[in-house]
């Protein structure tokens, strides 16, 4: 376990030090959410109704676009090679990396969501509900994005390719995340139904993402 803990600590440190770009995700989230009303118009009633959707879309983009460098940096400086000679399974190693990434990028999004809810005329209860769904759903986004990060490393193409590969896979998470938020806001569904499905999707994504990413890395190494 120490090996994985060391990897986790290293990635958290890298994210919060100068040049790590740990806060960029939240900044991106803030800007996306701020831009929406400029396109939609400052109609508070409308913003309040589609607020959860805006927050979810912003969080989705912020989670996925920051994943681009997660594995690519380790590949460029040779760290990924050495990780293959480690004694912990590659699946757990990429999971530790994804967890560190979620902690430094995903969790700040969850914390920022209620604050951004104010901009979108969401009351405190609804903002809390959206934050709760994000807390349950953003790990799914990170682990689905991990597959794209691994594929883009092996294909040596980064950036938008990752988003193109991964975004279709995030559709279910988006559906049930927004559905749960809206259920808390207006009903008529009980909050628990979509929220439970969202949690299930997250658990599935953690397993599938981890194995798919490790497989992609193993097969793509040259």
């Amino acid at each position: 376990m120490t090996a994985l803990a060391a990897l986790f600590v290293r990635d958290v440190r890298l994210a919060i030090r100068v040049g790590g770009g740990g806060g960029i995700g939240v900044l991106f989230f803030l800007i996306v959410v701020t831009l929406m009303p400029f396109a939609i118009g400052p109609d508070l009633a409308l913003l309040g109704r589609i607020g959860p959707a805006i927050l979810w879309l912003g969080a989705l983009l912020a989670s996925l676009l920051t994943l681009d460098r997660l594995l690519a940096m380790d590949q460029e400086d040779g760290s990924l090679d050495l990780m293959l000679t480690g004694r912990s399974p590659l699946e757990l190693a990429v999971a530790a990396k994804a967890l560190a990434h979620w902690l430094t990028t995903g969790l700040p999004l969850v914390i920022a969501a209620p604050l951004l809810g104010l901009f979108l005329n969401l009351d405190l209860g609804s903002s809390g509900a959206v934050a709760l769904t994000l807390l349950a759903g953003t790990p799914a986004l990170t682990f689905i994005g991990l597959i794209g990060a691994a594929l883009s490393v092996t294909l040596r193409r980064g950036g938008l390719l990752l988003a193109v590969l991964v975004m279709p896979l995030t559709v279910p998470v988006l559906i049930f995340g927004v559905a749960a938020s809206n259920a808390a806001l207006v009903g008529p569904l009980p909050f628990g139904t979509p929220f439970t499905i969202l949690c299930a999707l997250t658990l599935i994504s953690i397993v599938v993402g981890t194995f798919a990413a490790a497989t992609a890395l193993r097969h793509g190494m040259e």
């Binding site: 290293r10 440190r13 890298l14 030090r17 100068v18 040049g19 790590g20 460029e76 400086d77 040779g78 760290s79 090679d81 050495l82 000679t85 480690g86 004694r87």
Partner: peptide, 16 residues
């Protein structure tokens, strides 16, 4: 798992 590999890249992180 029983080998050390020393390649052309140093596998160092500049900010650590």
């Amino acid at each position: 798992e029983q080998a050390h590999y020393l390649g052309h890249q140093d596998a160092l992180k500049p900010s650590l």
